[in-house]
Amino acid sequence: MQSAARRRVVVDLGATTLDPLALAAAVDLAELAEAEFAGLFIEDVNLFRLGALPFAAEIGMASGTWRPLATVDVERMLRLQAERLQRALAEAAPVLAMAWSFGVARGAPLRSLLAARADVSVVPGAARRSRVHDGPEQVLRQAFQRRHAGGKGGHGPVAVVLGEGSVSGRTLESARALARSRGAAMLALASSASGPQGKRERPDTSEMRMIHLPDLAPETLARALGNAQALFWPLSEESAEGAVEIESLRLLLECPVVLVR
C-alpha cells in the first residue's frame, strides 16, 4: 500500500480521543505531501485500569444509565470500535486516492502517538475533549469528504512556534502548504526574550505575521492562539520532557498540535 520512500502522517483514531480538527489536519497534510495517512487506534490504558477497578461503571451517553464495566468489556468494546473504524477508513480513504494504513496500539494516547513511526504526528487538542461529536465513523468519513469537496477548514490562522531551537524546513514547508491549501493566514509565534543570535538562525518568515510573546509557555501560547486551525510545534527530539511539554500544551489548546520530524 505504500512505497518505501513515502512519508507517513499519523493521527489518533482512538474512540475517545478522535478529534475532527486533528483528523482534518492529518488528512490535509497527508494529501498535500502525498504521504500515507496512518490511522492509529490507541486503546487508552486508562480505560483498562478503570475496568480493573472493583467499582468501575460507565454511564451511557444515549441511555443515561449506569452499568458495571469490567476489563473484558473494555477490551470487547475497543476491539469492535477498532474494527468499525478500520472499515470506515477503508470506505472513506479511496475518495482521495490516498495510501492509508490502520494500526492499533495500547497505552497512553500521546505517548503511543509519539512512539509511532511517522514523519508527521498530529496530536489532538484536548481542551475540547469532553465535547461530544457525531459517531467516530461519521467524523472519519466527513474528514475525507470535506477534503474531497475542497473544504477550506476553519477561519483562523495556521501557527508555527519559533522556539529556542531551530525550526526544521519541513515543518515550515508543511505549515505553508496547509495554510495555502486552506486559504489561511500564517502566524509565527516567537518569544520576545530570544536574543539576536536566535533571530539570525530563524528561517525566512516574510510571509508570516510575526507575534512576539513574553514567553512560549503553554498558557501563553493557548491565550495567543485563539481560533488557530493548527499549531506546528518544533520537535527537536523525542524526550520525556518534550512529551510532557506537548501534553501540557495540548491540554490547553483546541487546535491540533502538528509535530514534523
Binding site: 474512540a15 475517545t16 480521543t17 487508552d44 490504558v45 486508562n46 480505560l47 485500569r49 478503570l50 477497578l53 468501575a56 461503571a57 460507565e58 454511564i59 451511557g60 451517553m61 444515549a62 441511555s63 464495566l69 473494555v74 468494546m77 475497543l78 470500535q81 497512553a108 475533549r129 469532553s130
Partner: peptide, 17 residues
C-alpha cells in the same frame, strides 16, 4: 473519563487512572 459509550469516573494520580 470518556469511554466508547459514554463516561466514567475513576481515582487518578498525575492524570492517570
Amino acid at each position: 473519563l470518556r469511554t466508547p459509550n459514554g463516561f466514567s469516573l475513576a481515582p487518578a494520580k498525575d492524570g492517570e487512572v
